[in-house]
Structures are given as C-alpha cells and as structure tokens.
Design a protein around this nucleic acid. Structure first.
Lengths: 256, 256
DNA sequence: ACGTATTTGTTCGTATGTATC
DNA sequence: GGATACATACGAACAAATACG
C-alpha cells in the first residue's frame, strides 16, 4: 500500500568537503576568528576536525573562492574582511572568451551603475560624499601622471558610489562585474588618454549626487558609461584583438 | 632616483589549481564538452593535463561551486547546463542571513529587475513573448491550486524577462539574487494568498513589454516588486522571525 | 647574511563505498 | 552476484615560499 507520509525520507548524502565547508563558514560568520587573523595551519586544523588534509584543502579552496579566506604560501591562511566576503568572485575565469561578452558586461555595468548613482544621490552620507571627493581629486592629480593610480581612483570612486547606497549587495554586484571586465580594462583603457574626459564626467556625477538630484545623477552616469563603453569597444576592435588572458591567474587574489 | 615606469613588474604567482580551473573553464565555456556530457575521469584527466589528482580535485571542486560541473559519486563528473553556470551559489546562503539582508536583497532585486523589464520591452523576440505568455497562463491556472507550480511559473516569468534582454550576464545576476532570497521565499510568500494580485501585476508587465513600452514596463515592474516586497517584509516580521537556515546542506547540489 | 622551522603547494599510493552493466 | 569504473578519502612525502632567530 502506498503511504502518503513516508516515515523514511531519502537520506541526503553529503560529502566531507561540504561538511567541513559548512562548519568553517559557520565559524567565520560567527566571528570566532577575527578579520585578518590567521587560522590554524592545514595539518593542525585537519587533526582537530579529524579529517584528511586533501578534504580540508578542497573545503578551504571553496571558502577562498567565496572570498572568505585567503591562503598565502609559506605564511598561512587568513580571514578576509567581512566586506570582501562575497566580493571577490574569481568566477571571472569563466567569462574568458569572445568580444560579445565585453558588450554584455558593459551593458550590465551600465544598467546597475546608473541606478546606483540615483540611489546614492538620495542616500549618501556626508562621509560618503567626502570620500568620493577625495577620489576625484586624486584622479585630477594623476590624470597626466600615473595611469595605474588614476585607474585605482577611478574604480574607488565608482565603488564609493555603490557603498553610498548603504546596500551591501549592490557593491558586491558591481565589484563582480568589474572583476569580469578586468581582463579588458587593463589592456584597453589604460592606454587611452581618456583621462581628462573621464574626470569631467566623474565630476558631473559627483555634483549631481551632492545636489541630491537622482535624475541628474542617473543621466550623468549613463553618459559617462556610454562614452567609456564606446571608447572601450573601439580600442578592443582596432588595437588589441585578443584580451590578454594568461597574465592573471584565475584564482589568484586581487589584493586591495 | 625614482622610476616612473619600472621595467620589472611584479610577477604573479599562479597556483596549479588556478591554472587548471582556468583551462577547464575555458573548455566548458567554449563548449568543447556538451551540456550534460560526462567529462573524463579524474585520473585520466589528471594524466592528460599532467597534474596530480589532488590539484585537479581542488579545481573541480571550485568549478562545482560555480555551478559549471556536477560530480556524482560512482558515476563521474558532468557538465551542467550553461544556464546554471553562475546560478548555484548555495554557499552564500550561509553568509549572514539576518533580517537586514532581506531588505537589501529586495532592493537589489528591484533595482535590477526594473531595468530588465525596460530592456526586455525594447528587445524581446516573438519567442520570448510567447514564453512569457505561457508562464502567465500557468500562473492563472494554478493561482488557486498548486502554490508550488505557481511559484515556479512566477520565477520562470521573471527569468524569461531577463533572458529577453539577450544579455547573458543579467539573468545570472537575477538568479543569484533569487537564490539568496530563497530561504525567505519558501517560508513566507507561498503561504500568503497574494497570488491573484501577483497575476494582475504580471499581466500588466507583460502587456507593457508586448506593447514595446519600456517606461510602462519599468513602472509596472516597480509597482509589482514594491507590493511584493512590502508583503514580504510584513510576513517576515510577524509570522516567522527566523529564516530556516539549517535545512539545506551547504555544498550539496540541488538537483533539478 | 644565513640557516632553520613553519606553512602552503603538489604528487603519489592505497583503500573504500557506490553506481552501472 | 560479480566485474568494472568512478568519486571519495586518508596518509606520507617532497617542493617552494616565507618568517624568524
């Protein structure tokens, strides 16, 4: 006879790695280990948990991918800042192919960032604003000098806007997309002398946010990303047909 | 004297695991292995790549977390559907799920989906439209009957809109957010009898997209998500204070 | 400046439980 | 039931990078 409510439910087989992962993630989230602190060495940890080093390492690798921990050869394994927990998706190893991806990434970025700018205009605190202002100043100083520092300030400005929404999900989403775009950004944009144009656009965005004008913030962000996206695709087509793939290891950590 | 353009740039150390991950991800994305197909056994793969099994397994585990592959004990390792590639972040479900996150998730979802609806109104193909229509019909049929099937159609409708943007990044972003919300969705929304209200709102969105009216599509999507978000938070506060946390194993695979 | 200890990175051999035929 | 193929898991060992005395 068929039973509607079977006493025996199918058991779910879990792998050791998954269990380890869950346990460690719990400790990480509960804060049993402080940010930046070193967690016990692999051998020691494995002994405490009663598992082999291979299984433990697979779990640690999983946590590393999620941006919860970071392993440094010869040093140990360290707890990441909570703010980075979801923000380092080395997933972008995936998006390693055709130029079509670039178009879609640019579009996704524009879609999200335009709204981010609008939200930031409504919610930015004085601290958020002064932070954005600092990055703009750096960009103006470095526009004709160090393209690397200019690029950093550029990214930081956009992330500051994301943070100013006071929503922890959205900065992560943006960071994810930027990581995905990174392989093209380096080769294309740094060479271009779009710096001064970018500074002007950034300043317009900033002023709109300061003025608490969401619509103007959206519009200026949209203009900025349209212009940059255009430049970007041109550089991609003409100059360097292939995005540099091999330079950065897929799982390697982008240190702040 | 300081050098502006140093000849020597810092070398980036790559781990074997990362390289394997990258290589396999490339093959996966290029479609060298078909969806659902079995990839070579661990030992064989390791031999072909010239790497040890431990390193290979760490890479495979990483790919599994990203939802690109799925390994079944005793059977082998299989390629997931591309549509699931980024959509299985079960692990982040662990990551802090206090009530505040719910608000931020709802907001992030609204921000993205409103724009998705607008883009879909501009780009949806006839096939996209008929797919959306089917899901709406299912929702109408199941509104008073099977809440599970209703919920599925609901999700599918929203994903169909995302797909209609013809951008592969955006549906993944949406799916990710929905996965993050899953723990609350189950406990809260299925109980509510918001079905008929939801159907009306869905139909309005659908009609705006069919009419190729981006602004109306955005507005109706915004209304819909505002209403649902409100309902959602109320159910969260009053009814079930704690989201069900422990039910789903962290790394275990949710089979379709 | 040098060597030693510690730690992660990597490989190999082996054993076990599971699924398919 | 038996045979085969496979993922899972352990332990030992060496390599490479780092930290510290």
């Amino acid at each position: 006879m068929p039973v509607n409510r079977p006493i025996l439910t199918a058991i779910t087989r879990t792998t050791l790695t998954a269990d380890i992962c869950k346990k460690l993630a719990g400790h990480l989230m509960r804060g049993d280990w402080a940010e930046g602190e070193r967690i016990p060495a692999e051998r020691e940890l494995g002994q405490q948990l009663g598992v082999g080093r291979a299984s433990l390492r697979e779990a640690l690798k999983a946590l590393e991918i999620m941006g919860m921990i970071e392993s440094r050869l010869g040093e140990g394994t360290f707890v990441c800042k909570r703010s980075e927990f979801l923000s380092r998706p080395l997933l972008w190893a995936i998006a390693g192919s055709t130029g079509e991806d670039a178009i879609e990434l640019i579009e996704a970025r524009r879609l999200i960032e335009v709204e981010l700018a609008g939200l930031a205009a409504e919610r930015a605190s004085p601290e958020d604003l002064s932070e954005m202002g600092e990055y703009i100043e750096i960009m103006e100083e470095e526009a004709d000098r160090d393209p690397v520092r200019f690029g950093e300030a550029d990214i930081n400005f956009h992330l500051a806007i994301a943070r100013a929404t006071h929503n922890r999900i959205l900065p992560n989403a943006l960071q994810l997309i930027r990581n995905l775009m990174q392989q093209w950004i380096e080769s294309a944009l740094s060479v271009e002398s779009a710096a001064h144009e970018a500074v002007r656009q950034h300043r317009r965005i900033f002023e709109a946010i300061v003025a608490r004008d969401p619509e103007a913030a959206r519009a200026s962000m949209r203009d900025h990303l349209n212009a940059m996206g255009k430049r970007f695709l041109e550089a991609l087509k003409s100059g360097k047909p292939q995005p540099r793939r091999s330079s950065r290891p897929s799982l390697a950590v982008t240190k702040p």
